[in-house]
Simulated assay, not measured.
Amino acid sequence: MIRTLASAAALGMGLLAAGAAQAQTAQAAQAAEPARTDYADKANWLCFPGKANDACAVDLTTTVIKADGSSTIETFKADPKAPIDCFYVYPTVSTDPGVTSDLKADPAELNVVKQQLARFGSKCRIYAPMYRQFTLAALRSMMLGQPLPGSTDPSARQVGYQDVVDAWNHYLTHENKGRGVVLIGHSQGSGVLQRMIPAEVEGKPVQKQLVSALILGSNLPVEAGKDVGQFKTIPLCKSASQTGCAISFVTFRADAPPPAGSRFGKVPQPGMEAACTNPAALGGGTGELKAYLSNNANIAAASQPTPEWVKGKSNPETPFVALPGLITGECVSKDGFNYLSAKIHADPADPRTDVINGDVVNGGQVLADWGLHLIDVNIAMGNLVDVVGQQSKAYLAKAR
Rank of each mutant, 00 (worst) to 15 (best):
L60P: 00
Q30I: 00
K104L: 13
M13T: 10
A108G: 01
N53V: 09
A118V: 10
G12N: 15
A82R: 00
A52R: 10
P97Q: 13
Y88P: 05
A20S: 14
A23E: 11
A9S: 11
L103A: 00
I65N: 08
A78R: 07
C124D: 02
D79C: 08
A18W: 12
D106T: 12
E74T: 09
L117W: 14
P97I: 05
A35D: 14
V64D: 06
E109N: 01
D79G: 12
V58P: 01
Q24S: 09
G19Y: 12
T92A: 12
A10Q: 08
A82P: 12
P83S: 06
Y88W: 15
P97W: 15
L110D: 08
A52I: 01
A82L: 14
T25D: 04
L110S: 12
T61E: 10
D59N: 11
R36H: 12
Q30E: 00
A55V: 11
A31H: 00
A17L: 13
A55I: 03
A57M: 06
F48Q: 03
D85V: 09
S122I: 01
S94D: 06
A31P: 02
A43L: 06
A20P: 03
L117D: 06
R125A: 07
Q27I: 10
A10R: 05
N111H: 15
Q22G: 01
T100P: 05
L117G: 04
D41G: 07
G14D: 14
Q30A: 08
I126H: 00
K114C: 03
R119K: 04
L46W: 07
A55H: 09
K42C: 06
A108Q: 08
V89W: 05
A29H: 08
P34K: 00
A105E: 03
G98W: 10
V113A: 02
R125I: 02
T61R: 11
A118W: 00
A17N: 05
D85W: 11
I126M: 10
V64S: 07
C56W: 07
V113L: 04
V93W: 10
S122D: 06
A78Q: 01
P91D: 08
A8Q: 15
T100E: 14
A23D: 13
A8V: 09
T95M: 09
D96P: 03
A10Y: 03
T61N: 07
Q27A: 08
K123E: 11
A82D: 01
N53C: 14
L60C: 06
P83Q: 07
C86W: 01
V58S: 02
A31L: 01
Q115T: 09
G19Q: 13
A18M: 13
A29I: 08
I73L: 10
C56I: 14
E33S: 02
L16N: 04
A32Y: 03
L110W: 12
L46R: 08
S122M: 09
Y90S: 02
S71D: 14
